[in-house]
């Protein structure tokens, strides 16, 4: 008699796990396709399509979506599809720049605090606590209000309010690494503090920091939109997603939904796609967490 696996309970389990996995695979594919499409559009449309996104045409203002204007036109007759692509370009630039800056600051602060310990650690962590105690959108508004509207003040404002969690994650990681015997071995081999940090500690925390950076891109884009919507972020002539929605508020009340809806989708869909990719990446580098989440 051969010993066959019991067929009664297994298929349910298997199909449960399999459907779970296939949903995840589909989600990753959709996310990759969306991010690729957005990046391509943002990179290729401006040099290839010779249309002026700023061209005002008052005779065709506030046209609903049609074949000639798939997303319709805004209150100055500018094509919304083109404006959205240009806005995406600015938002993505701000998001990536702010996320990278925040991650570099956070990693540096966390690594210094964790590697040095003692008063340096206590001092730096109190700075982190101080920053965290103020609502970060409020702090961001305060920072951006100190400058003339432009791309870089927004980047600085978002970066300076978003390095805190990275600093905490990196510090915790470095503290746990610091006690490993391989650091003892390096010290015994004559390595300086600096060499231990650069050669052994930083490479170990880089995957975590990179993941934090990617997860922060959508968040930073939301902040750019929020600041621009409040009129504090980018200058109003510059097409950014926040500016587009801000400019469309009046026409929304008049029943023209397209100038609000399409830029809104342009914020939501890419951020979901990037977050989906980052989530899949996190599951890959941290499988234990995945199994805990799947229970």
């Amino acid at each position: 008699m051969t010993c066959e696996p019991t067929a009664t309970a297994d298929p349910a389990w298997r199909s449960y796990g399999a459907s779970r996995r296939s949903t995840r695979a589909v989600r990753v594919r959709v996310s990759v396709a969306l991010v690729a499409a957005i990046v391509l559009a943002v990179l290729l449309v401006p040099p290839l399509v010779h249309l002026d996104q700023q061209a005002v045409d008052l005779s065709s203002k506030l046209l609903p979506p049609s074949w000639s204007h798939p997303f319709g036109t805004d209150d100055l007759g500018r094509d919304l599809l083109l404006r959205c692509v240009y806005g995406m370009r600015v938002s993505l630039l701000v998001g990536v720049a702010a996320a990278l800056t925040a991650t570099v600051i956070g990693t540096a602060v966390g690594a210094i605090a964790g590697a040095l310990g003692g008063w340096a650690d206590r001092g730096l962590m109190r700075v982190v606590d101080t920053f965290s105690s103020v609502p970060h959108l409020l702090l961001g508004i305060f920072l951006v209000a100190m400058f003339r509207p432009g791309v870089w003040p927004v980047v600085v404002s978002v970066a300076l309010t978003h390095w805190l969690s990275t600093a905490r994650i990196v510090r915790a990681e470095v503290l746990s690494l610091r006690a490993r015997p391989y650091i003892d071995a390096a010290v015994s081999g004559g390595a300086s503090r600096w060499r231990v940090a650069v050669r052994h500690l930083l490479p170990a925390v880089l995957p975590q920091a990179a993941l934090a950076a990617v997860l922060m891109v959508p968040h930073a884009m939301w902040h750019e939109s929020a600041l621009s919507f409040l009129g504090l972020g980018l200058p109003t002539h510059m097409a950014s997603l926040g500016n587009l929605i801000q400019g469309a508020r009046g026409s929304l009340l008049a029943g023209q939904w397209w100038p609000t809806l399409f830029p809104g989708l342009f914020i939501v869909i890419p951020t979901l796609a990037i977050a989906g990719l980052a989530g899949a990446w996190r599951e890959r580098i941290n499988p234990r967490r995945r199994s805990e989440l799947m229970l």
């Binding site: 015997p181 003892d184 071995a185 015994s188 004559g190």
Partner: peptide, 16 residues
């Protein structure tokens, strides 16, 4: 420091 060479108990943990 370098006048003393050390070998630890667990090779896995003592290697980067």
């Amino acid at each position: 420091r370098t006048a003393i060479g050390v070998v630890f108990q667990q090779p896995r943990l003592s290697c980067d």
